[in-house]
Amino acid sequence: MSGFNNSAILSRRRLLGMGTVGVGGLLLAGCDKINANPALRSILQGADDLHYPLQRGMLGRDTLAREFSPAQMSPVFRTNGNVTADTDAYRAHVADNFARWTLTVDGLVKTPLALPLAALMAMPQRSQITRHDCVEGWSAIGKWQGPQLGGILAMAGLLPAARYAVFHCADNFGTTPYYESIDLIEAFHPQSILAWRMNDQPLSVGHGAPIRLRVERQLGYKQAKYVMRVELRDTLAGLYGGKGGFWEDSTGYQWYAGI
């Protein structure tokens, strides 16, 4: 009697075990199917998009990212992404130390600007020791210095329709130029600077010379290097892939990179 019961239980267990493995396999296959399903992807991406209004609701406009002391800086700040802009025009700028380089500010502005590096250096400066968080998971703490982006945009004067600042860069991935974009809250944030100095040295080519955008409340891919032009736009549609950045277009990283 009890022998019969035991074998019944065992076979039930075995059945359940097989069921678990089967369900596991189905789940895996199912996840990859769902992962490839456009309708379900758009639901997941819609949920991801909620983080932007959620964080905007929780974060004050000017809430500052944590700043660190010099003793807390990374001994070595690694480079990543492109470590140079592989064009003749960029190489020429490097050769004459960016003496003829200018930053273009245009689009939905009252006065388009062409600012030489010396002009950016002469503007009021902000210096900050902040943490750079790569989407991959690593962090490095470094010191950045440059004029506030808000001050430059105020010089140009924004037209009422302007909603995004787009950063056009000198570097390419294959034939696709790097670009990034942020909303105006982030653009006028006190810590949003165009850094031409890093760790008390002129910004190196590896880290984005002559200037790199610092948007301290977002992930590393927003920190555009080799910035050549700031374009003010009312929409991101119609620009390259339309998602507001190189990685957003090419691999689907979230446009709002606060998470």
Binding site: L28, C31, A47, T251, G252
Partner: peptide, 23 residues
């Protein structure tokens, strides 16, 4: 066999992770 998705994709993994974080 341990990951979503099965082959390497940081952006797809983040798509799942950040959506279900809310759930």
């Amino acid at each position: 066999w341990m990951t979503i998705p099965t082959s390497y994709s940081l952006s797809d993994a983040r798509m799942w992770h950040l959506a279900f974080a809310l759930v």
